[in-house]
Structure formats: C-alpha cells, structure tokens
C-alpha cells in the first residue's frame, strides 16, 4: 500500500474528512486548498491519485484537471472530482477536462474508499 493521494479542497472540513478516511486506510495524503496550491504542492513528484473539489478560488478544479492533463507527467494519473448532487453539468465538464471519475458530495467514507480503489487499485 502506501499509495500517495493529493486532496484538493478549499474547505478544511472536507480536506480533513478525505484525508482522515484515506490515511485510515493506509494511504499517504497530501493536501492543498486550491488548484494553484495543488500544483505547487505537487512540484513534479508523482502521485497515485488526485481528488479535487470543483469550486475553489484562484484555480478551480476544472482548471487543475486541465493543467494536470497538459503535463505529460500526470497525463495518466487518475483524477477524481468532487461534485454535488444533481450537478451533471459539472460531472461532464470534469470529464471533458480529462477527469477519471467523480465522487458525489456529501459522501460516505466507505463510498470514498470504494471509488478510490476503483480508479487506483
């Protein structure tokens, strides 16, 4: 195990929740509060998964997905976007930008782990 996940969300509660759940399951978790900070936090190190919220200041989740996909180092890194219920347009926008999948907020910890395993094993 010991897979590395980058969790990006401007809400600290949400970051805590994601981080806590994943760490409990043996993942290593990096955190960032928006897209730009996420790019900073990454530098050019490789991660096994990026989980990002969509609505964030400075650089939103869609922008982050695009930026990551343009970088060959992250072109095949799974990316999950956090969306809210009934927001299909965001799901599609995320997909078009290159996201791997999505998690609907608010989510149950089990669901999060299940989806994480689904895309990064």
């Amino acid at each position: 195990m010991g897979k590395k996940v980058l969790a990006v969300d401007d809400s600290k509660t949400m970051r805590d929740m994601v981080s806590f759940t994943l760490k409990g399951a043996g993942y290593e978790v990096l955190e960032a509060a928006d897209g730009l900070l996420a790019l900073d936090a990454l530098g050019n190190q490789s991660v096994d998964l990026v989980i990002t919220d969509i609505n964030m200041p400075n650089m939103d989740g869609i922008g982050l997905v695009k930026a990551l996909r343009q970088n060959p180092a992250y072109s095949s890194t799974p990316i999950l976007v956090l969306t809210t219920e009934s927001d299909d347009s965001k799901k599609n926008e995320g997909r078009e930008a290159g996201a791997t999948g999505w998690i609907v907020k608010p989510f149950e910890p089990e669901k999060l782990l299940k989806v994480v395993q689904k895309v990064c094993g």
């Binding site: 996909r69 799974p78 990316i79 997909r95 290159g98 791997t100 895309v119």
Partner: peptide, 9 residues
C-alpha cells in the same frame, strides 16, 4: 485511457 481509467481495474 485519456481519462486515466484502466480496464484491468
């Protein structure tokens, strides 16, 4: 594959 999905998973 462009969306980084993986059939084996």
């Amino acid at each position: 594959f462009k969306h980084a999905n993986e059939p084996l998973l």
